[in-house]
Write a protein that binds this DNA or RNA. Structure first.
Lengths: 212, 212, 212, 212
DNA sequence: TATGAATGAGGGTTCATTCAT
DNA sequence: GATGAATGAACCCTCATTCAT
């Protein structure tokens, strides 16, 4: 049938990824059919296979690309941040920000892990472990520096990640709060949670009021 | 396929629920086939329909029963607890404890909501909202009492729930920590997170509310 | 419980085997679709799977059953036959007769071996080897007895089998020749082929031309 | 399919025919996909259509070319052979030799006839009939000359062809026997089979056992 | 000539569900 | 209650083929 103008190649692949992201986020990997996906993209189901090798590989690619981005951007966010407190603040800010921007990838990477076949699963879990490790290190450092008071670093790591990740379940762009306000709220919660009673978190300097 | 003598109807139903819980937890609702479930129970697929009306209803029942239990037991846990601090502590302890005991139901109730058809979905979300509301009330009360310092009660509510709920992703019975240790760690994290740095509540200076 | 008409159980399986035999014979295993087969049987494609586990297994079953029958019936045909000449005659008569009666199974077992997956292939080839071995033994015995003059037993074995098997490519029931005439013709050809010039085959006493 | 000198079209076309021959022999026509074929040749599937018009036509070409060669070479082999015995011997020698040399074409021409569409099928069957007719004539002549003793020429024709053709199912170059030994064995089998008891076949003078 | 993307049909197979026995 | 056979829809995926580039 008549196709839209323009080079189809890269465009089609991008459309598949985008639509796939949305459909998996909305219905789940198992519940998304390639017929749906193809219809969304505007091609026949079989034509998908000019761009992907398998439904499974599409999922794996989406997740792996996300995790790689996550790790790479975390490095950038933490670069030249000194001290556990500042690094934790940077971690929270980055994590929340990333999760608001790419909440679909994040959600999928968390909820569809079980749909990955073993080989892909191993790879992704390893990368995710590396990410968690970054937070665990910050907490450990902070305890050593005496600025954090954490009973169990592992529990705290998981808890903080869960707390931060949870927001992609409820965050909707254009909601009541600004992005900055949400970041500030989480910074405060997390830092308060891990800092000893005697210390107090330094103000972040943001006011969270949307100004545009 | 061992059958006990007597009326084994209730037994079969219980086996179905149990196996269904496990299979949905493990593979997801969409990925669990009734053939699998029947095989697990030791009957033929068609025989399931002597006990359930629909795959969808099985899911709805499992989730609804869980949420009802959750609410009922929360009432019990909070009964005769006075003061926001003590009530929050009780909430955390109850929530963590319940999630460790019934992590499969909890996980399913969180991850398979999207598989519920609209009518069931509404009902469950309403009940879940009631549960979250209990926590929000505690936080609001605490702020009014001056014992909590929370910028945005809603964000804090979601965050705390996410934090607590996250543990059913990693908790394994028989792990490194005792149940009590995990409860204690979470109590500390949460209470630290919401209590003011000093004895006197510090004005936050940011309200994060959109002003447009 | 008596099976009434319309109660399909064993009947359906038998219909599947029969139709499968015909369709594979006619179009080849690869070219036969399960949709065709189901239509022939009068059920929906998916319903086939109440009776077979796989298209591949259907083929393997058809072939294996045939080969088992072939071996078993050969034993019967050779029982109490004495002497290489008489045994060879019995072999030829049995083989030709069986191939005319069940030419579809025979054809499939020869032509669709390559469609068997490795495990099934091994099993069938082994059984076929056992069958060929029976003929090879007869030839070897005959040479030892001095009644056969064969340069290479293996070549002769393959050749005789091929000669006899070839007839299921052209034999049509109701053709010009009677079954007995065809058997007689092949007995003569084979025995002449392997007996030394000096000996002479016993007259079969049948002329084989249909007289009606 | 015009071939121009200088271009490498012929090369590609030859590669397609060669790979097609091998793949059809190995997997069967239905089971061979043009994607496989293209991969084997080292081009994209769509590019095949610069050389062939259709999968079906590729098969028909391969078979027809083979049959034409077969007939033409048979004429050469029989030229200036006199007498039914010598002509039969020549037929057998030629047939066996050709089948060993080009066993893939032969096998395909026998086993994939059913995959030809009606028009191609008719043409090929007619040519094959002509080939069989040559053998039938030799047998008929021999009976008239009194050197053959055959009850039914048609049965004998089919049987001999089957016997000879069967060897491309088991012959492997480099096996136990030399080409000449195999030819000699078949000459003996066939001639013995059709000659009357009183006559004796002339020795072929070859022993055929590999000595190196 | 070769390519890559598209088509439309169809492949084997699984599914939730029904129902006579 | 349990069963086995049936349904009809849908699944992921492969196919031969076309055609603009």
């Amino acid at each position: 049938m008549a196709r839209t103008i323009g080079s189809h190649g890269p465009t089609t692949m991008e459309a598949i990824r985008k639509a796939g992201l949305r459909l998996i986020f909305q219905h789940g990997y198992e519940a998304m059919s390639l017929r749906q996906l193809a219809a969304e993209v505007g091609i026949q189901p079989g034509s998908l296979y000019n761009h992907i090798s398998t439904k499974q590989e599409l999922l794996a690619d989406l997740i792996q690309d996300h995790i790689n981005d996550l790790l790479r951007e975390l490095e950038t966010a933490l670069r030249d941040k000194e001290g556990a407190v500042e690094r934790l603040r940077a971690f929270v800010a980055f994590h929340v920000s990333y999760h608001m921007t790419r909440k679909r990838e994040v959600f999928i990477a968390n909820s569809e892990l079980r749909s990955l076949d073993p080989r892909n699963y191993e790879a992704v879990v390893a990368l995710r472990g590396a990410y968690e490790q970054r937070l665990a290190e910050i907490l450990t450092d902070g305890v050593a520096e005496g600025v954090f008071d954490v009973d169990d670093v592992q529990v705290a790591t998981f808890a903080i990640i869960a707390l931060l990740t949870g927001l992609c379940s409820w965050y909707r762009p254009g909601g009541r709060l600004t992005k900055d306000a949400i970041i500030a709220a989480h910074e405060k919660l997390v830092l308060s949670g891990v800092m000893p009673r005697s210390a107090k978190p330094s103000p972040s300097g943001r006011d969270g009021i949307k100004t545009e």
